[in-house]
């Protein structure tokens, strides 16, 4: 038996601590140890991207990291996109408005990937560029079109509202 290691991470603005086996993936750690099941496992071999979270503001696949590797880092999951008062983030609102989700399983990963993209491109490029940005997350329901529309709509709202979206994001 390999001994467990202490891990301290800041998740959605909160410091969380746990002891984990080295082989425990970041995804399982978030879902089961920290009770944040919004990070979904679609393939566990780094293709579907459905487990995407932000690590220090950068998108990563939580099935391809071990929890021990996140020690000392900051993580944003879909649960952290929601404002402290419970309001949906403008991206979440736009996904709702434009029917950018059907089964909802890839939605957390899509939201976080879009979030990262809009942080770097507050004024989004062409549809092709938005599609490339979300190309690492597989969606089986929507055919992606409404996701592209929603991201563009959210960008318009966010740039109109000013640079700081109301969220507990660590990446702002």
């Amino acid at each position: 038996m390999v001994e467990k290691r202490p891990v301290t991470v800041t998740v959605n603005g909160q410091v969380r601590q746990a002891e984990v086996e080295p082989r425990r993936t970041l995804a399982d750690f978030l879902r089961e140890d920290l009770n944040l099941p919004g990070t979904h496992l679609g393939c566990e071999h780094g293709v579907c991207g459905n487990c995407t979270v932000l690590l220090d503001g950068q998108s990563v696949r939580a099935c391809l990291m071990f929890a021990v590797q996140a020690d000392g880092h900051e993580i944003l999951t879909v649960e952290g996109l929601v404002a402290p008062n419970g309001d949906l983030h403008p991206l979440q609102e736009a996904f709702w408005e434009h029917h950018a989700l059907q089964c909802g399983f890839c939605t957390p990963a899509m939201l976080l990937t879009a979030y990262e993209y809009l942080q770097q491109h507050p004024v989004p490029g062409s549809d092709e560029e938005i599609r490339e940005a979300i190309g690492g997350v597989l969606c089986r329901c929507t055919g992606y079109q409404n996701i592209v529309t929603a991201i563009r709509a959210a960008a318009t709202k966010l740039t109109a509202a000013g640079p700081a979206p109301a969220s507990r994001s660590v990446a702002d």
Binding site: V2, R5, P22, R23, E44, H45, F66, V68, Q69
Partner: peptide, 11 residues
């Protein structure tokens, strides 16, 4: 689909 047991060092 979970990894097997391994030990871990982080130099």
């Amino acid at each position: 689909m979970k990894p097997p047991v391994f030990d871990y060092r982080a130099p």
